[in-house]
Nucleic acid binder design. Structure first.
Lengths: 333, 333
DNA sequence: GGGCGAATTGCAACCGGTTCCTAAACCGGT
DNA sequence: ACCGGTTTAGGAACCGGTTGCAATTCGCCC
């Protein structure tokens, strides 16, 4: 059933090497042989085996795309962009779903077994140790949406979460809010910690401000709703909240409306991510957008560079955020 | 850097075949050699190359997962379930994003090059010709979310869209709606056509009913919003609408609220899919759920069966729908 | 027509496993 | 100690490509 190099060679009346070379860009083949081979290949419907060529060249054109985030709608867009970017470069994504119950070591082992050219870890919640382990196992790796650190072990592409916190704080202050809440994601997440740090930093520069801190148990709608319910039940609210994610903000928004509070009339809300639903008429959430397309383009570019040139120095790329103003904060002053 | 069979063999003082056999379940190896080999393998950190073994056995444990739907949030859950189901069976998903500008033939060629064990097409909007072409190219294929037809060319797993239409109609009728609207997805989509057919069928059994038909240009929030705006502008609305998808329904809902119409007070709305946002407090959309988990479990099961036993007769599996009652239809009578 | 360097070509070894086949080791029984 | 029947082990060919190397062919000039 499958047509091999040998079949084409016989049909074209040339050696196997000649066939191989016609399909290897930059190899030395005369125009005559090339056309004979191409014709034979076309007639037979020949497609070179990526497995075999991967085996002998050591490059498989496979990119391991690892994520543990299959709940936040923003990641559908992330996967869309990643798969396209990877495909456009002539590579293919081998997807790894690293959910709670899967063993990270097993995942690394399997990425090695398939000898992927590089690994892209796409997650802000996955421990940096995972990427580091990939690297230790000899896999070129880049961590997209990873945390910026002083001395990163692997290349990181993402945003500056501390700056994100500052940016949110500035947005709230500029709109005259003074009694301000932080409604973060899980308290243990580094994204939460970093954003909180920036948030505090900026508020600290405005003496008259009050800051209250609270955390949703996960990055999810329901956790956001639950935490806002708790806040409502436990006394007067802040004037505005910076939420750790749009889904959290939307959960909070739903609860506020249900409780008869006007947003932004009574309470202001600003989210993070600019997921599609943030722009829905039912939502119109003011939020901070991270440049997904750029993060992904850079990540893929680096992954490829790294696979070709493994000893490239480790870099860190932090891309700029944008405030997207919609309807959940009162107008600026 | 990479440890091979040979290295392990030398270290263990046995032949390469012996090593291969210890890693091949069911092969004949004495306990003594096995333990020698296992120890040597562990010491060296040996992981057998999936490429090489795929090359010689003809099975790669790779499943091509093809989709063109990277916009509808429901598909994030689809990908989550698929990747887990595939991984749990010891296989890995090779993801193919078949968006508008990618060539389906190229995709098939590449799936052949990597000699995937089977292909799963996950899309309700992709032409059945694609799956048929896979099959013609010798790739075992199953079409998840595909259309039920009289004589399917490839195995299909999904739902009965005609029945979905009937179900929606029955739900509306049972709640006393008589002037009823169909707000489908793209008029050309088979899902739209089938659901409309079922919808008409059921309404036809109730003489006093009026049916109005309209279509959103795509399966998206904005298209739903746009179409509902048009309806509002062009005269009195129906009492309730069956929308082709939750995102369309949510778009419509947003426009209705903005126009000051109460839902379900003035207008009823029922969606399709039960995406996560349908359950948000801001939305509480009554909708019809398709059993994603079952569809996916069956699809993966069939794909594997097919890869092991290519001549299995072509079957069609249609799974049952569930009405999820929330807050956008008035209570039943 | 002969000679020269450059471009092509084919051979053969190799990538890392799998598996058929034969030979060797093993077993219990006499 | 010997025999016949099982296991088990190793050799070698094969999966489908790639590539270094030596041999051949080519184009061109004298």
């Amino acid at each position: 059933m499958t047509v091999t190099l040998k079949d084409v060679a016989e049909r074209a009346g040339v050696s196997r090497s000649a066939v191989s070379r016609t399909f290897t860009p930059g190899a030395s083949v005369s125009a005559k042989t090339r056309s004979k081979v191409e014709q034979a290949a076309a007639e037979l419907g020949y497609a070179p085996s990526a497995l075999a060529s991967g085996l002998s060249t050591g490059r498989t054109k496979l990119i391991g795309l690892v994520s543990n985030n299959f709940r936040n709608p923003i990641f559908l867009e992330v996967f869309d962009l990643f798969t396209r970017a990877i495909q456009d470069r002539g590579l293919r994504p081998l997807l790894v779903n690293l959910s709670e119950d899967t063993d990270p070591e097993a995942a690394i082992r399997m990425l090695r077994q398939y000898s992927v050219d590089a690994v892209i870890v796409a997650s802000s919640t996955l421990s940096p140790a995972f990427a580091a382990n990939c690297k230790a196992a000899g896999l070129p790796v880049v961590h997209a949406f990873g945390r910026a650190t002083r001395r990163p072990e692997v290349p990181v592409v993402g945003i500056d979460n501390v700056e994100a916190g500052r940016m949110a704080a500035r947005a709230l202050l500029a709109r005259g809010y003074r009694d301000i809440g932080f409604l973060g994601g899980p308290a243990g997440a580094t994204t939460t910690q970093d954003r909180l740090a920036g948030f505090r930093q900026e508020l600290a520069r405005h003496p008259g401000c009050r800051l209250r801190e609270s955390f949703a148990s996960t990055y999810s709608h329901d956790a956001g709703a639950a935490e806002m319910s708790r806040l409502i039940d436990s006394g007067p609210l802040a004037e505005a909240y910076f939420c750790g994610d749009d889904v959290i903000a939307i959960g909070a928004l739903g609860v506020l409306r249900k409780a008869g509070r006007e947003v932004p009339g009574d309470v202001g809300l600003i989210g993070f991510n600019d997921m599609e639903a943030a722009s829905w008429d039912l939502v119109t959430l003011t939020t901070i957008r991270q440049p997904l397309d750029e993060i992904i383009a850079v990540s893929v570019g680096q992954a490829i560079a790294l696979s070709e040139q493994p000893e490239t120095p480790v870099t860190q790329t932090l891309l700029p955020l944008t405030l997207i103003e919609r309807g959940t904060l009162r107008p600026g002053m």
